[in-house]
Simulated assay, not measured.
Amino acid sequence: MVKVADVVDKLNARVICGECSLSKEVQFGFASDLMSDVLTIDTENLLLITGLNNLQTIRTSEMSDISFIVFVRDKKVSPEMKELACENEITLLESGLSMFSACSVLNDLGLQPVY
């Protein structure tokens, strides 16, 4: 298990929404820009790593019970995305790292892969 605050620290991430969830822990990570792949995941306590920054990502996460999303490649969260995420208690983070680098850092931190 990895504290969300440690994810923020190691990825040099900005917390966009969900500051009150930083003490929570995540166990698994899944990286994808294909939301159809995300919908196939049936894992609790998951951190989604993606570069797809649109409302579909938030809606997919809501349907998949994903409470934590890291947007990589310096992708920015829109006000509409932030509003929808806050309504659904989804923590949003932004990181300048590439998806590959973020996954490597998170693996070293102890986050487990889904597969």
Rank of each mutant, 00 (worst) to 15 (best):
G96E: 14
E25L: 02
V8Q: 04
D9C: 04
L39Y: 11
L106M: 08
V70N: 00
A5M: 07
P79I: 04
I41D: 07
D9T: 12
V15F: 01
S36A: 15
D33P: 11
Q27K: 15
M35I: 11
N45K: 07
S78W: 08
L34H: 13
A31Q: 14
S36E: 13
Q112W: 11
T43C: 15
V70W: 02
Q56Y: 09
A13T: 07
Q27W: 08
T91I: 06
M81V: 04
M35G: 09
K76A: 01
K75A: 09
T43W: 08
D65C: 07
V114I: 15
D6V: 02
F28L: 08
L52V: 10
A31V: 12
E25M: 07
L47Y: 01
C17V: 09
C17G: 06
L47E: 06
E44W: 02
P113S: 13
I58C: 07
R73G: 03
V70D: 01
N88I: 08
F68A: 06
E44A: 08
S101V: 15
F71M: 13
S23H: 09
L11P: 00
C86K: 00
T50E: 10
F28D: 09
V105F: 05
S23A: 09
S101Q: 10
D65V: 05
M35W: 13
T40V: 12
C86Y: 04
K76N: 03
D33V: 13
G51Q: 10
N88T: 12
D9G: 01
L39C: 12
R14Y: 06
A31Y: 12
K3P: 02
L106E: 11
S36W: 10
N45V: 07
D65E: 05
G110F: 10
E83N: 00
K10S: 07
L48Y: 00
N88L: 13
Q112E: 14
C86E: 05
F71N: 05
N53G: 14
V38Y: 05
D33E: 14
D74V: 03
L111S: 00
V77D: 03
D6T: 06
T43H: 12
L48R: 05
L48A: 04
E80Y: 13
I58L: 02
A102Y: 07
D108S: 12
E62Y: 13
G110Y: 11
I69P: 08
K76Y: 00
E62R: 13
I16W: 00
L84H: 12
L93P: 03
M63T: 11
V7Y: 00
F30D: 06
F100D: 13
C20Y: 08
E87P: 01
S64E: 06
A5W: 02
E89F: 09
S36V: 14
L109Y: 04
L52H: 11
L48W: 04
M81S: 03
S64M: 10
M1S: 09
S67N: 10
A85F: 03
D74K: 07
E62I: 13
S98G: 14
K82M: 05
Q112L: 14
S104D: 12
E87R: 11
L93C: 00
F68P: 01
S98T: 15
D74H: 03
D108P: 10
F71E: 02
Q112A: 10
